[in-house]
Amino acid sequence: MSPLLDVHELSASYGRAQVLFDISLQVQPGEVVALIGRNGAGKTTTLKAIMGLVSARADRLTFKGQSIVGRPTYGIARLGLGYVPEDRRIFTDLTVAENLEVGRQAQRGGRSPWDLTRLFALFPNLAEMRGRRGGHMSGGEQQMLAIARTLMGNPEAILLDEPSEGIAPVIVQTMAQAVRAMKAEGVAVLLSEQNWAFAAAIADRTCVIERGSVRFQGTTADFLKDEALRTETLGV
């Protein structure tokens, strides 16, 4: 089966400082892959580089078999690759409903589209605050809105940057449910995480990056078994 997202030898630099060195990873349709590593390992940059938000070089970078190198960000999103940034970037002046409207895209393929009813079933909190401004929401609520907003574009895969960061533990549970629900809908997820427990609970496969390079790639079960590697790379 050809991978949905295929990253081969991706490198990126900020000015003269190279931060990614030949990152290669694949995401299959409907699969959840965790990208884990310490602070500053290059997780966020990897996701941004795939979205075309930082300039990068790659030997091969394809989504659904189409090269997305040098494609404008909106074009990548239109192909069906969603992105939820680390800092959530909710439009604080817009209401919840308006935030969702910005994310809406024309339907792609035969898949049943996400709409407000289904999203509000997934995130019941949001249904109650439809008219509230994004700026007046808690971190966890903003995180839900950010995911819901991206789902409005009916993506086939989502890049999810640190969904558990800075939110209450009880919301982390909601996030885990949300990721499982997306997987159940056939949406592939590539998520970056520092919270290993969270990642281990939902990821099919795990990719560990360290100082801009891939250190390990395999099933989450295999990574769980390799205690020495885990201690060395994560300190847990």
């Binding site: 909106y74 999103a77 940034p85 604080t92 910005v102 895209q105 574009g153």
Partner: peptide, 11 residues
């Protein structure tokens, strides 16, 4: 408010 985010949502 945020041009890049709008682009990342496919606009």
């Amino acid at each position: 408010q945020d041009r890049d985010m709008v682009a990342a949502l496919g606009v």
